[in-house]
Simulated scan of single mutants.
Amino acid sequence: MQAEDLQRLVIYPMPYGKYQGRMLADLPGHYLGWFAREGFPRGELGRLLALMYEIDHNNLRDLLLPLRRRSET
């Protein structure tokens, strides 16, 4: 994981599927869990989804709050 990956979670939109357009940091836990069971996509998207899954699974979403505030300004 790179430090920039956390910032990308709050600005990177899901490119396809039911939650298309929603920021990766805003994807529901059950959707991230589905990817964890079925397999994450290849490349950067898969890496970021796996990171978001770990954050959600360990109840650490609050870590992203300062990054959200920074991206809104």
Score class of each variant (00 low, 15 high):
Asp56Glu: 15
His30Trp: 12
Tyr53Glu: 01
Gln7Val: 03
His30Asn: 10
Arg8Ser: 08
Ile11Gln: 11
Leu48Met: 09
Trp34Met: 13
Gly39Tyr: 08
Gly39Gln: 10
Tyr31Asp: 14
Leu51Arg: 05
Met52Arg: 15
Trp34Leu: 10
Asn58Ile: 00
Pro41Lys: 06
Tyr12Gly: 01
Leu49Asp: 05
Met14Thr: 11
Gly46Thr: 13
Ala25Cys: 15
Lys18Arg: 11
Leu63His: 00
Arg42His: 10
Trp34Gly: 09
Leu45Ala: 06
Pro13Cys: 15
Leu64Phe: 03
Arg69Trp: 09
Met1Val: 15
Gln7Cys: 01
Lys18Gln: 10
Pro13Tyr: 14
Arg47Thr: 02
Leu64His: 07
Leu45Phe: 07
Met14Trp: 12
Gly33Lys: 10
Pro28Arg: 03
Glu4Pro: 01
Leu24Asp: 01
Arg42Met: 06
Met23Gln: 12
Ala3Pro: 03
Trp34Ile: 09
Ala36Tyr: 01
Gln7Arg: 04
Arg69Asn: 10
Leu67Ser: 00
Leu48Gln: 05
Leu49Gly: 08
Gln2Asn: 11
Arg42Gln: 11
Gln2Lys: 09
Asp56Arg: 13
Asp26Ser: 11
Leu51Ala: 07
Gly46Asn: 13
Glu38Asp: 15
Leu45Tyr: 07
Ala50Phe: 02
Gly39Val: 09
Ala3Cys: 03
Asn59Thr: 04
Glu54Val: 08
Asp5Met: 12
Arg42Tyr: 05
Pro28His: 08
Asp26Cys: 10
Asp62Ile: 02
Ala25Thr: 06
Glu54Arg: 12
Val10Pro: 03
Leu9Cys: 13
Phe35Arg: 02
Leu32Tyr: 12
Gly43Phe: 08
Arg61Ala: 13
Arg37Ser: 08
Ala36Glu: 04
Arg68Gln: 08
Leu67Asp: 01
Glu54Met: 10
Asp56Trp: 13
Leu6Gln: 01
Asp62Trp: 06
Asp5Glu: 14
Gly46Ser: 13
Gly46Val: 14
Gly17Val: 11
Pro15Tyr: 10
Pro41Val: 11
Arg37Pro: 04
Arg47His: 04
Tyr53Val: 00
